[in-house]
Design a protein around this nucleic acid. Structure first.
Length: 259
DNA sequence: ATAGGCGCCTGTAAGC
DNA sequence: TGCTTACAGGCGCCTA
């Protein structure tokens, strides 16, 4: 599912391909099927030039001329494709010769939404052991739920929260506020390491093929996971699932390596 | 303010 | 073989 590394991979391709292009038309998918983007988000779209593509957490932001911008969220199954058609078309942008399609089978994605309050960008320097410790100290929720809370850290979902907790040797069910400064330093480092390695590999394309970059290329991180999607950990130990799901998600961990 | 649960969705896979 | 059911999960909203 598109998390920070997948969205960042999409961002890089879009920025490279679209920067400097002017939007000549757009098209909405079946409006009875997909909720219409807010009118204000579409106003003045045609004629605007793409000045850059940003990412904030799991949100993509097209920066447009005239101080405008257009946000995209891929949700669970959203895919951005350069050119071509395909099923489940939600939104299409035409920029001269270039065409960008947003396909969204499960309809959890968003176009033109307002950004909610988001926490730290985990790959920025302001995210570190001390800032993570401050953000978690008063929390009683399980650490994994806190990591997937976009208002605390922006961009982590089930895959990368699971992998980061393994890398830091922490169990997903542990109360967030019980982590020491040293735990937080280790965890912040693990998050940066896992995310940057996943970005370098172009994200994760799982068995369901839900994610591919805008040129149709699969990611490579799924082959490097230690825990997620495995029955036996990369460490060689049998993995366990927490007795109850955390934040509604099955949560795998290694009972030997994670304490 | 925080935490937990539900509903939204459909494609895939497992189960009978 | 063909049907039904469970599961996947990001996020907004609701309640306590």
């Amino acid at each position: 599912m598109p998390e920070l590394p997948e969205v960042e991979t999409v961002r890089r391709v879009l920025e490279e391909r679209l920067k400097g292009s002017t939007i000549t038309a757009y098209e909405l998918g079946r409006p009875t099927f997909y909720r219409r983007p807010p009118k204000a988000a579409l106003a003045g779209l045609v004629g605007s030039t793409v000045e850059g593509v940003r990412r904030r957490g799991k949100y993509l932001i097209l920066l447009l001329s005239g101080g405008k911008s257009l946000t995209l969220h891929l949700g669970m199954s959203g895919r951005v494709c350069l050119g071509g058609g395909g099923a489940h078309l939600r939104f299409r942008l035409v920029l001269g010769d270039a065409v960008v399609c947003f396909h969204d089978a499960r309809r959890f994605g968003r176009v033109g939404c307002k950004l909610p309050r988001l926490g730290c960008e985990p790959l920025e320097p302001e995210f570190n052991g001390p800032s993570l410790f401050r953000a978690l100290r008063a929390r009683r929720a399980p650490i994994k739920a806190a990591l997937m809370d976009q208002g605390i850290v922006a961009g982590l979902g089930n895959i990368y929260a699971t992998e980061a907790l393994f890398a830091a040797g922490l169990r997903p069910g542990r109360a967030a506020g019980s982590l020491s400064g040293a735990d937080c330093a280790r965890l912040a480092g693990a998050i940066k390491k896992v995310l940057s390695s996943a970005v370098a590999l172009g994200g994760s394309t799982l068995a369901d093929e839900a994610y591919r970059d805008p040129l149709g290329r699969a990611g490579g991180f799924q082959e490097r996971t230690c825990v997620y999607g495995r029955t036996r950990g990369r460490c060689g130990h049998a993995l366990k699932a927490t007795r109850r799901p955390i934040a509604g998600r099955t949560s795998l961990y290694c009972p030997v390596c994670q304490r």
